[in-house]
Amino acid sequence: MAESTASPNELDPVSQFPLLYQREYSAVYRTVRAIVLDASEAEDVTQDSFAKAYRARARYRPTAPVGAWLHRIAVNTALSHLRRRRLARLLPARLFQPADDRDYLRSEARDACEVALAELSPQLRAAVVLQYFHDYSREETARILGIPSGTVASRTAKAMALMRVKMTSPEQIPLVVSSLSRHG
């Protein structure tokens, strides 16, 4: 695995955390939202991720880019959040709450990509957003997710195949058309 190191122009999390927070906030928010699939929960989880990074900033070692370090914290926080949410739904007092992500699909007309993303497991969504939106290499994605790079390759291939099937299914065609016209 190629060792990627932080470039000298990178912000230092110890002395420049406010700047880093400003610069990376939207990128981390998008990663988190692709995993949790809810805009308001994504904001809360993003803030929680940065709070964790702020507490851990002295332990950052520049063996990887600072953005990858932040994304690693954010992915772990988002996956823990989903695990807690699943557990909370098992409690009797919370039975009135939606049972799973299918409610997300029913709640309103979603973009075709968002609907296709919702078909994937959180781990597949994390691999897809890191590699295909943030353009992290397979090795960087593997380091962020803490899995072998071969697993990243199989996860992204599986995710793309599932998304392709979902986006070409007959009920998705009107959504795909509106998505393409919106995003050019």
Binding site: Y29, R30, R33, A34, D111, E114, L117
Partner: peptide
């Protein structure tokens, strides 16, 4: 697919800025 994904995710913006 990659382009559509980038367009969709790129259009997500947090309602509140960093505080």
């Amino acid at each position: 697919l990659r382009q559509a994904l980038s367009g969709a995710i790129g259009a997500w913006h947090p309602a509140h800025g960093p505080d």
